[in-house]
Design a protein around this nucleic acid. Structure first.
Length: 941
RNA sequence: GCUGAAGUGGUGGAAUUGGUAGACACGUUGGACUUAAAAUCCAAUGUCCAUUAGGACGUACGGGUUCAAGUCCCGUCUUCAGUACCA
């Protein structure tokens, strides 16, 4: 009987679905384990072989944990709001919901055929109203909260109102907008409700603010910092400009310190933690204010080197700095304005590319040194960034290379405040091994002491204080798009109001077109039912404008990361649950994700935002975990191997790769399915391909050695490069088990690696051999024969290795282990059930279908997933003897097989006897024998 | 520049954490079976020298520690990823 993988796989997939084999229980005596994949965005292209890599790894782990006696939650869903469906809608008029539904069907079919052990009863879709009701609800909770820096915790905004009415705002220490005005309790209580609302907006964890945003004209929307790569949009590569807009923002900066501290408590890779640390960008230093001479203004700067305060010889402002227009003297006005205009014209990209050119201009104004009262010229320069710190720096040319270069270029003084350091060539940027000089009360101190003293003295003067600065900016939360969560917000007199929970969800309305309106409003501005009636408490049609008091609803939608920041909690419960986003019992039982697998591209987006939301939800008591993902693994990308044919310029002639050296050719991508394992092109197949019509019909192919050789190159898998390998075709031809094993076999999980379909014959051959070990032409070969010692050894070696591999996430080496085991057992002619049955359990996480089939044929009527993982027993691996390498002066000459229980002295005696014989033969004196316990025998002379 | 990861046959990659480098697989070559092909099976396959026996060299490069180094230490180079005028 042959191994009919297609039939076997279909059979068991159906069985698992019908029996709900992988349904997780919310009540169980077993310990819980939560294995999660980053849920996919269902794109129109469907899955290619790279997508399932992480899912296969997590599935192996989930199945393994079930064998190990855990109650495993392993869900899957779709991050189904997003730009591609909307772009497609703009082009075709097709509603994104329909496209999304179609794509999800394709995804589901493709996922099902690989045999994942997902509990589909908990599926979530971020675009379904049952789900985004709760995304909207969380938004409201953020609006109704403020963050107390003293307690490092978020509280309801009503508590802040109470504090304000009792003692004003001078005593509270909240995370809030900069430069909020101080008021007393009395002042607060006399404010109008509208005024109070305006004030509170400065403290809420999500707030409306006029912010400078990254506006992408081509996409008609704003983008977050992490959606911009090299100054252009991540999607589509369109230019991005700075623009001021009123936007919802998330006060993630309030959580900067906790987001940083929390990294120490979770098991993520160093590089990922490092990315987040860099993104948060904590720097400890001081804020210092410099009075501007002859003005009523001050320049506030942030510095990490307050110890170098006496080295300041000038100030530099960003060209966009508010003070520039106020302090520039009449003489300098023309130059300054010309400079500002010139920098504004330069795109972000140019400014980044051109970091070496030093440019700047003197404002004509001077600041006063806080201690020496010396006048310090105030310059503007584009090396100072408006978006970091205060947009102004105190320039210490002897201690900072950029200040140094600037000072040299404009011939500004470079006072040296370092003892015995030569600064004639470059600045001394190091904090170490140096003492401060020429600095009044700081003389002779090191960095640490001087910093402390400088801050103290500044505080005495009232011109500075110790300060910690974070690079992390608040996250803009509004998108001018259609296909996203609507905000549960309406406006009364321009002030945002939250819609009450019982009226959620606010359903995304139908629109005729998905583009922004002619007035430049977001697409929701086109909906004729996009207003809120406070009388009926419902969304009403704009047409009813005369019958009832209506208020405009927020027209923006939420960004992609809104729905993905909390979805892992929704899986804990029935996705249709309507009372809360998940029950308290479920949240208490599942806590957080034990293992999270996904791509590293989310390092500073999704993985930071979800940590922020979870910390917030913890503060407000909605969940009871501080971190969402205990352990995180980034799977590497599977790359495609593109194939090229070479067309001679201006002809329809194609030359084989070896013949192109002296010709003018250019490479053209061809479909990889026409290439065999030896890089030879199937010319007939290509000519007949309907996608290219007649393009290749009369093409002339010049061969070498009778074949056409193509060029190969490893690139990202992409439709346009014709290097996409479809898992459907692989499952069809080799089966899901082969695909699963091969994806693991390709290499370490976390590494990027190219796909090469040719290699799959190796693992496919293994599965056939495995089948033959159990089944032959007469049916089942397995019997109750007493297993041999060797068979036990093979089995237990395999158990041990695979268990270690899975725990260490090195799935690639397990596949080799299985191959060796099957080869050994075949050679031993093993037919014992006592060996072959447990072997199936060990294999089943990797190749569940064949394992389930053989398990069933061995007479088991329960799914193999209920079977406990076989226990490794050391005794079967213990050997009676061991090969000792015998080395002379470090060179291994021969090995001696000696019994394991031999004592050190006996080993020495035995080896000495050998040495004597050899020495006699070679006609020399015997050398001394040294035994290193347990390891090796040395003979030294 | 900074941070992180890595460099092993023709290729993907192993190596129990300092103990016989190259497991396993692909590819290649030869053979068996077959009218033929596919499939399957067997053998060889790091490089060099040697008819053989055997030997020399070999984990990016240069040093070092050790009886013993792919593994540890110092220096250099290269590749990939992230980040960047962050004061």
């Amino acid at each position: 009987m042959q191994y009919h993988f297609n039939a076997i796989e279909a059979k068991w997939q159906k069985y698992w679905a019908e029996h709900q084999t992988f349904k997780a229980e919310n009540n169980s005596d077993k310990p819980k384990y939560y294995v999660l994949d980053m849920f996919p965005y269902p794109s129109g292209a469907g899955l290619h072989v790279g997508h399932p890599l992480g899912y296969i790894a997590s599935d192996i782990y989930a199945r393994y944990k079930r064998h190990k006696g855990f109650n495993v939650l392993h869900p899957q869903g779709y991050d189904s709001f997003g730009l591609p469906a909307e772009q497609y809608a703009i082009q075709t008029g097709q509603h994104p919901a329909i496209t999304t539904e179609t794509n999800i069907k394709t995804y589901r079919r493709q996922l099902d055929q690989i045999g994942f052990s997902f509990d589909w009863s908990r599926e979530v879709r971020t675009s379904s109203p049952e789900y985004y009701k709760w995304t909207q609800w969380i938004f409201i909770q953020l609006f109704e909260s403020w963050y107390c820096k003293n307690h490092q915790c978020a509280f309801p905004i009503s508590e802040l109102e109470k504090l304000f009415s009792e003692e004003g705002n001078s005593g509270v220490n909240p995370a809030c907008d900069e430069n909020v005005e101080l008021f007393t309790a009395k002042e607060w209580n006399t404010m109008s409700s509208e005024q109070q609302q305006s004030v509170l907006l400065q403290y809420r964890l999500t707030y409306l603010a006029e912010t400078e945003v990254n506006w992408c004209p081509a996409l008609g929307t704003v983008l977050a910092n992490d959606e911009i790569v090299n100054g252009v949009s991540e999607r589509g590569g369109h230019p991005v400009i700075r623009k001021k807009m009123t936007q919802w923002s998330m006060r993630i900066s309030a959580y900067a310190e906790r987001l940083l501290q929390g990294l120490d408590t979770i098991d993520w890779t160093d590089s990922l933690k490092e990315s987040q640390r860099n993104w948060i960008g904590k720097s400890v230093g001081a804020s210092v204010t410099f009075n501007v001479s002859d003005h009523d203004e001050v320049v506030e700067v942030f510095t990490t080197r307050p110890d170098t305060i006496f080295g300041v010889s000038f100030m530099t402002l960003a060209p966009e700095h508010d003070l520039v227009s106020k302090i520039t003297t009449a003489d300098q006005k023309e130059d300054v304005e010309a400079y500002i205009e010139a920098t504004a014209k330069r795109s972000e990209r140019e400014r980044m590319a051109d970091v070496k050119t030093i440019s700047g201009v003197f404002t004509g104004a001077y600041a006063e040194h806080p201690f020496t009262k010396e006048p310090l010229p105030i310059w503007i320069g584009d090396y100072v960034l408006a978006g970091y710190g205060t947009g102004a720096v105190m320039s210490v040319p002897c201690g900072d290379q950029r200040d140094y270069d600037f000072a040299k270029h404009f011939d500004i003084a470079i006072p040296n405040i370092f003892e015995g350091v030569d600064i004639s060539e470059e600045a001394y940027g190091s904090k170490d091994n140096v003492k401060i000089a020429n600095s009044d009360f700081l003389n002779g101190m090191n960095y640490k002491k001087a910093t402390k003293r400088a801050i103290y003295e500044l505080e005495q003067l009232g011109q500075g204080e110790g300060k910690t600065n974070y690079r992390l900016r608040d996250a803009v939360f509004s998108r001018q798009r259609y296909w996203g969560e609507p905000f549960p917000v309406y406006y009364v007199n321009g002030k945002p109001q939250m819609i009450e929970k019982q009226h959620l969800p606010i359903i995304l309305p139908e629109v005729e077109k998905y583009l922004p309106t002619e007035e430049g409003e977001p697409p929701l501005g086109r909906a004729d039912v996009w207003a809120w009636s406070t009388e009926t408490n419902s969304v009403v049609s704009n047409a009813k404008i005369n019958n009832t008091t209506i208020h405009p609803l927020e027209l923006n939608t939420m960004p992609g990361w809104a729905g993905s920041s909390w979805y892992f909690f929704r899986y804990m419960e029935d996705a249709m649950r309507d009372e809360t986003f998940a029950s308290e019992e479920a949240l208490n039982y599942w806590e957080n994700v034990d293992l999270y697998i996904g791509g590293s591209e989310h390092a500073t987006g999704h993985l930071l935002y979800s940590r922020f939301w979870v910390k917030f939800m913890k503060d407000r008591g909605f969940v009871n975990v501080e971190e969402p993902f205990k352990k995180l693994i980034n799977q590497g990308m599977i790359l495609g191997t593109s194939a090229f044919i070479y067309r001679e310029d201006g002809t329809n002639k194609y030359f084989s790769k070896g013949l192109i050296a002296d010709k003018h050719v250019h490479p053209i991508h061809v479909k990889v399915k026409y290439i065999n394992a030896s890089d030879e092109l199937d010319i007939e197949g290509l000519k007949k391909d309907s996608e290219f019509g007649e393009d290749y019909a009369d093409a002339e192919f010049t061969l070498e050695d009778g074949v056409y050789k193509v060029g190969r190159e490893v690139e990202k898998m992409s439709k346009s490069k014709y290097n996409v390998v479809n898992p459907d075709a692989i499952c069809e031809q080799y089966g899901a088990d082969s695909l699963r094993l091969y994806e693991m076999f390709l290499g370490p999980l976390e590494q990027a690696k190219p796909w090469n379909t040719a290699g799959i014959t190796g693992v496919h051959g293994f599965l056939k051999k495995l089948w033959k070990l159990y089944i032959d032409d007469n049916g089942l070969k397995v019997n109750d024969a007493e297993p041999s010692k060797e068979a036990f050894k093979t089995l237990h070696k395999t158990i041990k290795k695979v268990e270690e591999d899975i725990e260490n996430f090195s799935f690639n080496t397990s596949v080799s282990t299985f191959m060796i085991a099957v080869n050994e057992l075949t050679a031993q002619k093993c037919t014992s059930k006592a060996i072959l049955e447990p072997l199936l359990i060990v294999l089943s996480p990797y190749a569940p279908h064949i394992a389930e089939e053989l398990w069933n044929r061995l007479g088991n009527d329960q799914s193999i997933s209920t079977a406990p993982f076989p226990k490794f027993e050391e005794q079967y691996l213990v050997e009676s003897s061991k090969n000792y390498p015998i080395s002379f002066n470090g060179k291994t000459r021969f090995t001696l097989e000696l019994p394991l229980d031999m004592s050190k002295d006996d080993i020495e005696k035995t080896v000495m006897a050998h040495e004597k014989t050899i020495a006699q033969l070679q006609g020399r004196e015997p050398k001394k024998v040294i035994v290193v316990p347990g390891k090796i025998v040395n003979i030294v002379g």
